[in-house]
């Protein structure tokens, strides 16, 4: 504490010596508190407390290496295709190829959130119960993510996040749309003058 207790020096009480009046050594701390809080306020406002998190994204090697590229084509029935459209719309195509006759009816429009998650879970359940694990023990369910040019970066991050939430281990992001897919989605993926 800021007070210093001074002992009076015991005996010399009555010897008549003139002593200087003792000054209090109490220090007023108020300005110091003011300063302290001022600095605290400054540092609180100037710092970024919540550190951003990050999501790792690994993309396949693009180097032309023809030998490794020969993989078995995926069976359409094991695949959920997710198209990212305008205005955060998502189009799901579950288990059929885009050139199938039934594709236009099967194409489901969902929103991000529970609707999309339910769609993924439903498809995941169907595929995983219908097919067996492959030789390496991977679940058969595969998601193909197809961002279109009208989708935003947020959509991409959200769908990758959805993959983490639904624990879909096998997914691929493909930014190439085949002709039949373009036909299927039609105007829904074309940039419109209203878009910024």
């Amino acid at each position: 504490m800021a007070e210093i207790v001074e002992s009076g020096g015991g005996k010399g009480k009555g010897d008549g010596k003139v002593r200087a009046k003792k000054l209090s050594t109490r220090v007023d701390m108020t300005p110091m508190v003011d300063l302290g809080f001022l600095l605290i306020t400054f540092f609180m406002l100037a710092t970024t407390l919540s550190k951003p998190t990050s999501m790792t994204l690994n993309v396949p090697d693009k180097q032309e290496d023809k030998e490794e590229q020969e993989t078995e084509p995926l069976k359409a029935s094991k695949v959920l295709t997710v198209f990212l459209g305008r205005n955060d719309d998502v189009y799901l195509l579950d288990g059929i190829a885009s050139n199938d006759d039934k594709a236009p009816e099967e194409l489901k429009k969902v929103r991000f959130g529970t609707e999309l998650r339910d769609g993924i879970f439903k498809s995941q359940k169907r595929v995983n119960s219908q097919f067996e694990k492959d030789e390496e023990g991977n679940l058969p369910f595969v998601v193909v993510i197809k961002p279109t040019e009208v989708s935003t970066y947020k959509n991409v991050v959200d769908i990758l996040d959805e993959m983490a939430i639904t624990k879909t281990k096998r997914y691929a992001m493909v930014d190439f749309l085949s002709d039949s897919e373009k036909e299927l989605l039609g105007d829904r993926i074309k940039p419109q003058p209203g878009d910024q």
């Binding site: 919540s50 951003p52 998190t53 999501m55 790792t56 994204l57 690994n58 993309v59 396949p60 996040d161």
Partner: peptide
């Protein structure tokens, strides 16, 4: 081929 995408928590 490996990136970090920065996001909010």
């Amino acid at each position: 081929n490996k990136f970090n995408l920065i996001t909010d928590a």
